[in-house]
Amino acid sequence: MLDQSPSAYRGRIVLIGLLFVFGIIIWYIGRAWLQKNDDPATPVDATETVDTSLANVRFLTAKEVLARISRQENLILLDVRTRNEFDVEHIVDSLSVPVTTLATYSPPAGALLIIITGPDIPNQTIKGIDTLFKERQYTFAFLQGGLTEWNEAGGSTISTGDPESLLDYSKVIFVNLDEIEVAFNAAVNPRFLDVRSKELFEKEHLPEAINIPLNELEKRRSEIPRGTSLFVYGANDYESYQGGVRLFDLNFFGTRVIKDGLIGWKEKGLPLITPETKNVPPQKKDDSQ
């Protein structure tokens, strides 16, 4: 039977107390160990390996680069990702110079190069670019955080126009060909913008349309008249859609995209300008008459 004497009872109390204190000590030790391993700010033990390969590489934050742009400093935004990555989305006015072609790149004198990399680029590649540009005595810095930090800082980017992207789709206002006359007449200073190639434009185009090919919209955006209501079209729905997305990214808001593009326009038998014919462009209705 269990000893019920006072001395035995006191012994059990002491034992329980010791076990309780021991449990608390173990709990505190375990919690401290977990915090050390979970907290990235915890100093690493001197025996552990620390990656210091980028310690001497210069980085600028997106806000710092945007401030330099606002001061109109001589900057060149150099995107060293692959051409496919560049086409999907890139910073407005940046240059595509994939890392595989950097050895042949020669920047203008006096410019500060801002190097844009992707999230998956190895540190060794960054170190290699850093070494190459230092050997050539270029003035340069890497964009810290890449496109992610750039977007978070409010920097402008332009995308190719992914038809499966909800974000890109939200940038576009479609207008059906059945509605085009009403929409055109109701718009303020309406203009057609043809984003097909120059060769296709010269063969046939909509009345009074201006032509800036899709892949030239970014660098030739100053040619697009401000204060106009743009109706953009391409050879087909996809090209028209891409034009609308890119114009939105270039701050041409409210652009209408003509659904079905030039193909649908021709199927409807609507007027076209060709080398052999001259058609009267759509006229705005005069409400005073």
Rank of each mutant, 00 (worst) to 15 (best):
A183C: 02
P108Q: 15
L113D: 08
A153S: 14
N176K: 14
A183F: 12
A183V: 12
R136W: 10
K171M: 00
A186I: 04
K134P: 09
T148N: 12
A103S: 08
F133K: 02
G118T: 08
E149Q: 13
E179M: 10
E179N: 14
A103T: 09
T101A: 13
T160S: 09
P122K: 15
Y169K: 14
I116F: 01
A111E: 13
Q137S: 13
F142Y: 05
L102A: 07
F133H: 09
E135P: 00
I180C: 06
F133E: 12
S106Q: 10
F142R: 07
L113P: 03
I129S: 09
A111M: 10
T104G: 00
V172R: 01
P119W: 02
P163E: 12
I115H: 04
F174D: 07
W150D: 06
S106V: 15
Q124M: 07
T160C: 04
E149I: 07
T101W: 08
L102C: 05
E149G: 00
T139G: 04
Q144M: 14
A109L: 11
T101G: 02
N176L: 06
G146F: 03
E135F: 11
K127R: 15
S156Q: 14
F174K: 03
G155D: 04
P163V: 15
A103H: 14
S170P: 04
F142D: 07
T157D: 09
K171L: 00
E181C: 00
T148K: 13
P107A: 06
